[in-house]
């Protein structure tokens, strides 16, 4: 392994480790949290970091570190849930449109274009207003909003692949459409879809954090990073605004890690 290769591997190792840590916090927060994230200590508000409260306490005297750990649950759920919805709906739609051409192509792809005319955050705000705030509606709304993007990416990749001669060969030996789609086309567009998943994942988490920040996402007191920044905004004059630092750092690190990984993946693909 030469030095360049080593640097590239390290460039991936750091963000991957951090994201795994966040996912672990999300799946099993009890393991890493030191306090109950909802337990208030009214006599100990706005404390600075100490051995008891690792990152200090917030306006209700709740332990910030534990709230951050539990807050990663929202990020992880959005990451897995919304991404799953948009991939599982978007990719098949794109595949069908590319394979059957003609009317399915027109209906599906023009439909997707049409949906992209409505800005995601506006639709998100309205949808959540009428569905009611909460984690499940947040996951569903964000997932649906990204269906068109995956349909488009899968569509253009599948279109390219289906021109290949091995697809013609598979058809000639009498394989069914479903078999060709699943066995030959899907594996060949998987890499492209993965890159898109990385890019979209960052946007999805940002959108969720933004909605939480505005108070339109998961209702308090459930800890979420976006909401923590939003609440901290009211106490900017206390301790030099340190309350916004911790949740902001976590969000930035997560997005930075996802973007760094998807940059690496796409540049590696273009080099091959």
């Amino acid at each position: 392994m030469n030095r360049k290769e080593l640097r590239r591997r390290c460039g991936l190792a750091l963000p991957v480790t951090f994201l795994l840590f966040v996912a672990l916090c999300g799946v099993w927060p009890g393991l890493l949290a030191t306090h109950d994230p909802l337990k208030t200590h009214y006599d100990r508000t706005f404390e600075l970091p100490s051995s008891e409260f690792w990152l200090g306490t917030d306006q209700y005297g709740r332990d910030i570190y534990s709230r951050l750990v539990y807050g990663s649950r929202i990020t992880t759920m959005i990451g897995f849930g919304s991404l799953a919805i948009s991939v599982l709906l978007g990719v098949p739609l794109g595949l069908l449109a590319a394979w059957y051409k003609g009317i399915p192509d027109m209906v599906v792809m023009r439909g997707m274009d049409l949906l992209m005319v409505f800005p995601p955050i506006f639709v998100g705000i309205v949808a959540i207003t009428f569905l009611g705030a909460g984690l499940s509606s947040l996951i569903a709304v964000i997932g649906f909003l990204y269906v068109p993007r995956f349909a488009r990416v899968a569509y253009s990749a599948a279109k390219e692949v289906s021109e290949e001669s091995y697809i013609e060969a598979a058809r000639a030996i009498g394989q069914t459409d479903i078999a060709i789609l699943l066995r030959h086309i899907l594996p060949n567009i998987a890499a492209t879809v993965t890159v898109q998943a990385g890019v979209s994942l960052a946007f999805m988490i940002l959108l969720a954090a933004g909605l939480n920040f505005l108070g339109l996402g998961v209702p308090p007191p459930t800890p979420s990073w976006g909401l923590m920044v939003g609440e901290a905004r009211r106490y900017l004059t206390i301790n030099g605004g340190i309350l916004i630092v911790w949740p902001s750092t976590f969000i930035v690190l997560v997005i930075l890690s996802i973007n760094a990984i998807s940059d690496q993946l796409s540049s590696r693909r273009s080099r091959v």
Binding site: L206, V252, L256, N259
Partner: peptide, 15 residues
């Protein structure tokens, strides 16, 4: 550029 893209709007605004 990576940094500019990765920091959420609301963090920048609050900062």
């Amino acid at each position: 550029a990576l940094m500019l893209i990765s920091v959420p709007d609301f963090v920048i605004g609050t900062a």
